[in-house]
């Protein structure tokens, strides 16, 4: 691969990664969030693959394939199931016609109807976070400027946006998406900075993330059973009263 094409492909994958993080903030439809997350996982795998081909480290291609399967396939599949569990399971009976008013607030589970921070403000915040990531990453780039490390601010920006999604969204699934975005950002940082952490650590981390999502999946089901929904605003029984 020529150096020009390498840079171009790497930058493109990083751009898609960052764009997906932004779209996660932009979109309210939870099903769309999950799809965007899959695209982001694919972009992450692409970064690893491009680096592997460029540095002629074929082990990295295996890692890329693993990352792709996990983050573009398995995790989105799990989230889709967590979303679908509601419609497939014992859904609430529709309210009697007398109570159905056209002005009733949309309480459907498929959308982030009232995020803690509204969408326009979160987009502006994301812009600020990106600038912050750019500022924070300057010493990282200065240490060893290559096309890959020059893209490090993208990784940090995705981490920050993921953290922000975690804070600013009320739906359980949206929080999980935020957590995974955060994690994708960290993995991207690892790939860009040092072509990924050693395989044993990468394996352990992937396994941990998979288990964490499984645990959150189960907890979502329980939350629906206990609270009748996945609005995290309902989680306010434990406090220092």
């Amino acid at each position: 691969m020529t150096s020009g094409a390498y840079t171009q492909l790497l930058d493109l994958a990083c751009g898609v990664l960052l764009l997906c993080a932004v779209v996660v903030l932009w979109q309210r439809e939870l099903a769309v969030l999950v799809r965007v997350l899959a695209v982001q996982g694919a972009a992450l795998a692409a970064i690893a693959a491009v680096l592997g081909v460029h540095e002629r480290r074929w082990g990295l291609l295996v890692v890329a394939a693993g990352v792709g399967v996990l983050r573009a396939g398995v995790l989105p599949y799990l989230l889709r199931r967590a979303l679908g569990a509601r419609t497939g399971g014992a859904a609430d009976p529709p309210p009697p016609a007398a109570y159905r008013s056209p002005y009733r607030e949309d309480v459907s589970e498929a959308r982030e109807t009232r995020p803690v921070v509204n969408v326009a403000a979160s987009l502006v915040t994301a812009a600020l976070l990106t600038l912050l990531a750019y500022a924070a990453a300057r010493p990282l780039v200065a240490l060893h400027p290559t096309p890959a490390t020059r893209a490090l601010p993208v990784g940090l920006a995705v981490v920050l946006v993921g953290f922000f999604v975690l804070v600013a969204r009320r739906r359980a699934i949206a929080q999980v998406v935020g957590f995974l975005t955060l994690d994708n950002g960290i993995t991207a940082t690892a790939f860009l900075a040092a072509s990924g952490v050693p395989p044993i650590v990468e394996l352990g981390v992937s396994f941990d993330v998979l288990l964490a999502v499984l645990v959150l999946h189960v907890l979502t089901t329980r939350m629906r059973a206990a609270f009748g929904g996945t609005d995290l605003d309902d989680l306010r029984e434990l406090s220092d009263r």
Partner: peptide
């Protein structure tokens, strides 16, 4: 921002 930090040689 990207045109600042993603400008590789190409």
């Amino acid at each position: 921002v990207a045109s600042y930090f993603l400008t590789g040689e190409a």
